[in-house]
Simulated assay, not measured.
Amino acid sequence: MQPWRLITNSSSNAFYNMAVDEAIMILHSKNEVPPTLRFYSWKPAALSLGYFQKTKKEIDYQNCQKEGIDLVRRLTGGRAILHDRELTYSLIIREDYKLLANSIEKSYQQISRGLVSGLQQLGIPAELKAVERGKKAPLGHSAACFDAPSWYEVILDNKKLIGSAQRRKNGTILQHGSLPLTMNAEKIFKLLNYSSEEQRKKARRTFSLKSTSLKKAGYNFSHSELENAIAAGLAQVLGIELEKSKLTEAENELAKKLASEKYKSQNWNFKR
Rank of each mutant, 00 (worst) to 15 (best):
G118M: 07
I93E: 11
T248S: 15
L161G: 02
G50S: 13
E127S: 12
I93K: 01
L91D: 08
P149Q: 00
A217T: 07
S117G: 04
L47A: 06
L6M: 07
A203E: 06
N31I: 01
K159I: 10
P44Q: 01
S10G: 13
A101Y: 05
G177V: 08
S211Y: 05
N269T: 08
K98F: 11
L181M: 15
K246L: 10
R272F: 15
T8S: 15
N31E: 13
T36P: 13
S260H: 12
L71D: 06
F15S: 11
E105D: 11
I104T: 11
L139N: 11
Q120C: 13
R205Q: 11
I26H: 05
D21Y: 03
W4A: 05
K257D: 13
K215M: 12
E253Q: 14
V33N: 04
L242G: 02
S195N: 15
K54V: 11
R94Q: 09
L87F: 04
E32N: 07
W268F: 05
Y219A: 05
A23F: 01
E186P: 10
S107Q: 08
S208R: 06
L71Y: 01
S48D: 12
K264R: 12
A231T: 03
A14W: 01
D147A: 07
A23V: 03
K43L: 14
K262H: 03
N9D: 14
K135I: 15
Q166Y: 01
R73M: 06
K215Q: 15
S260Q: 15
T182W: 04
V131G: 05
